[in-house]
Design a binder for these strands. Structure first.
Length: 412
DNA sequence: TCTGGGGTCCTTAATCTA
DNA sequence: TCTGTAGATTAAGGACCC
């Protein structure tokens, strides 16, 4: 009984009276090995084979996505391509084709919109859906989950893993629970038991550095974290992070699905095949990157007051420098000139450059007329909101100009 | 062993301002 | 006018996610 009282916690975020015992149902949809699956659909001869999308062997870069056959060799996303090649020299190695993936993604989001209008694109291959109140239309959560998977597969040939629970965290952990092609539903009553045996590394926002701290404290599972004193945890992680992980351990998280999330910055970066000393090459790279940033900014009607330069030197030493301008800009020359001034400012090491990047942020929101000036007309339709979501996804995964690398897609 | 690209959020420190 | 201070803003870097 005590446990039952505790699991009521996840509903608090929804702002509903606890007495009502009502809660939302949030679904999380994750396309399986997305980039690799798209390639396999286009090339039936790759079906069942280890497929690795990312950099090509012999070049700098990492794995963006690996098919499940490739994962059997221990290949996973973010792994250096040299290591992936060593593990499976016979795998099919492919460069990412973002246009192809965007088309598939668009198709999937159109399908999700037939389930509910409350769809939030978390990335090119992931979405949250608020499926509360759909039981009369589609049935219980299990049926809704099956229907999401069925429609996606019928229309695209892609398989997806779906998790459904009372909030975003539980839905997301649910979709990760059974992969590929999985479906997991966690009721509010099951939340604590579902979380308890999990390694803490499954929680959101827990990376390598935080894992080291948890290791030192001897906290391995969510159940152990739940029992650990919050005050002591705060001494090691800081107040905010400690409270966050403690909440997650009790299954408490947001249940809000926000269809339109506005972006906070636009940036482009590129890694050179070999480290560069020549200023002419760096300037040329910066020119292309600034042009790309400006193009995206114009397309989205955004002007940024802050220009950021990112430089990575040999040895992976990374620095950023930023400058707030008196006026916001979306002009390629402004961005390039400001970034180059930052580079020449003198406080950066004089070493060969491995990566250079540039970005803008801090939007000018005071003058709506300015946004109108650059707003690209697009078809007016009832699916305007979906299109905006798709635009955001597309913008988020736009291709770099100079590029060597690949956008990494999800999955650990 | 070798680590891409494009984002977000958080912490900390320096600087500005009332 | 000077000084101290608190809060806001800016800047840099770290960690994390997909």
């Amino acid at each position: 009984m005590q446990r039952q009282v505790k699991v009521a916690d996840p509903f608090r975020m929804s702002g509903m009276a606890e007495a009502e015992q009502k809660h939302r149902w949030i679904a999380h949809m994750d396309l399986d090995a997305f980039f690799a699956s798209c390639e396999q659909l286009g090339h039936p001869e790759y079906a069942g084979r280890p497929v690795v999308v990312g950099a090509l062997p012999g070049h700098r870069g990492v794995v963006a996505a690996a098919s499940y056959a490739a994962r059997k060799f221990g290949i996973h996303s973010a792994m250096p391509i040299s290591e992936a090649h060593r593990r499976c020299p016979d795998a099919v190695f492919l460069r990412p084709d973002m246009h192809k993936y965007r088309r598939f993604s668009q198709q999937v989001f159109e399908i999700l919109a037939t389930i509910t209008p409350t769809v939030e694109a978390a990335s090119i291959d992931e979405a949250y859906l608020d499926v509360s109140g759909l039981d009369k239309l589609l049935g219980p959560p299990e049926t809704i989950g099956r229907e999401i998977k069925r429609r996606i597969f019928a229309s695209t040939g892609l398989t997806a893993s779906v998790g459904i629970g009372p909030n975003r965290l539980i839905a997301k952990l649910g979709s990760e629970h059974r992969k590929p092609d999985g479906l997991t539903v966690i009721t509010p009553q099951q939340v604590l038991d579902f979380l308890a045996p999990m390694p803490v590394s499954n929680l959101r926002g827990l990376g390598r550095q935080t894992q080291k701290i948890f290791d030192r404290l001897g906290i391995r599972t969510v159940a152990q974290l739940r029992a650990y004193p919050l005050a002591t945890l705060a001494q090691h992680l800081g107040e905010k992070a400690a409270a966050n992980f403690h909440r997650q351990a009790r299954g408490i998280a947001s249940d809000q699905v926000v269809p339109e999330r506005s972006r906070k910055s636009i940036s482009k970066e590129t890694t050179f095949e070999t480290d560069v000393r020549d200023h002419a090459i760096l300037q040329e790279a910066l020119r292309g990157l600034a042009a790309d940033v400006a193009r995206t900014a114009r397309r989205e009607g955004l002007s940024g007051s802050v220009v950021t330069l990112k430089i990575r030197f040999e040895g992976f030493e990374t620095h950023t420098r930023q400058q707030k301008r008196s006026r916001p800009t979306q002009d390629e020359r402004d961005i390039r000139k400001t970034a180059w001034q930052l580079f020449l400012a003198g406080d950066l090491p004089r070493k060969p450059v491995r990566l250079i990047g540039v970005g803008i942020s801090d939007w000018d929101t005071g003058d709506p007329a300015q946004a109108d000036l650059f707003d690209t007309p697009r078809q007016s339709a009832s699916s305007e909101r979906l299109l905006k979501t798709l635009d955001e996804v597309n913008a988020k995964f736009g291709k770099g100009v100079l590029q060597v690398g690949a956008a990494r897609k999800g999955g650990k």
